[in-house]
Design a protein around this nucleic acid. Structure first.
Length: 200
DNA sequence: TTGACGATAGTCT
DNA sequence: GACTATCGTCAAC
């Protein structure tokens, strides 16, 4: 295994990054305990042209300024007053593209992840869904702006290849305000993985 | 300064 | 399937 080089995130095609992140491992280390798992579901947000993106039309606020940084850091924000959602910032500085991590297959530090989720047995619900997986991994707003090769939070390549045939594309979720962008097939899942949200 | 609302999840029916 | 907890953000006042 190796930690992904930050160049990986500079790809100017955020749809490509969304797909490439499938099969990678996202890992956190908190209080010296490591937790993580394989990414099974993502959504791409295409910067200024995407009405579903927080940075649509180049809107820059104190919440989303992490998206305007050079690719390779985390953008964390609070949704519905209770869920910290994790995004991977991509592309060049001032091009606010990002990929939302929606689900993982837990593999490292499962006991602690279960504890954080108040669960006793491992199933899909532990880390499927963007709010659940941040809770399982212990990710909070403290990780906003964190480099994805830091020693608190990083993404590994364990040489698992997901072919384009193994990827299921579909519409994004929870963005009913985004008009013609509602139907863009920018949500990616590992086909047949039981660790994603249910197929639609 | 304020109020309306969200890239959700868990619980209840 | 419907309902709602719960609060930071942001744009309007």
């Amino acid at each position: 295994m190796k930690i992904l080089n930050l160049d990986f995130y500079l790809n100017s095609d955020v749809l490509d990054v969304g797909k490439n992140l499938l099969g990678k491992f996202i890992v956190t280390k908190i209080d010296d305990i490591v937790t993580g798992g394989m990414i099974t579901e993502t959504e791409s947000y295409k910067g200024i042209e995407d009405k579903a993106c927080h940075a649509y039309m180049g809107r820059k606020t104190s919440r989303n300024e992490a998206m305007f940084e050079k690719g390779g850091i985390a953008y964390i924000y609070l949704c519905y007053g209770m869920h910290s959602l994790l995004n991977v910032v991509t592309n060049k500085k001032d091009i606010p593209d990002a990929v939302l991590i929606r689900a993982i297959e837990p593999s490292v530090g499962i006991d602690l992840m279960l504890k954080r989720r108040n669960k006793t047995k491992l199933d899909r619900s532990v880390a499927a869904g963007p709010g659940s997986l941040t809770k399982a991994l212990g990710i909070t707003k403290k990780h906003n702006f964190a480099f994805l090769n830091s020693d608190l939070l990083w993404i590994e390549d364990r040489n698992i290849k997901i072919s384009s045939r193994g990827i299921l594309c579909s519409k994004r979720i929870g963005i009913d305000y985004a008009e013609e962008y509602i139907d863009k097939p920018w949500r990616f899942r590992i086909k047949d993985s039981k660790w994603t949200s249910l197929a639609k």
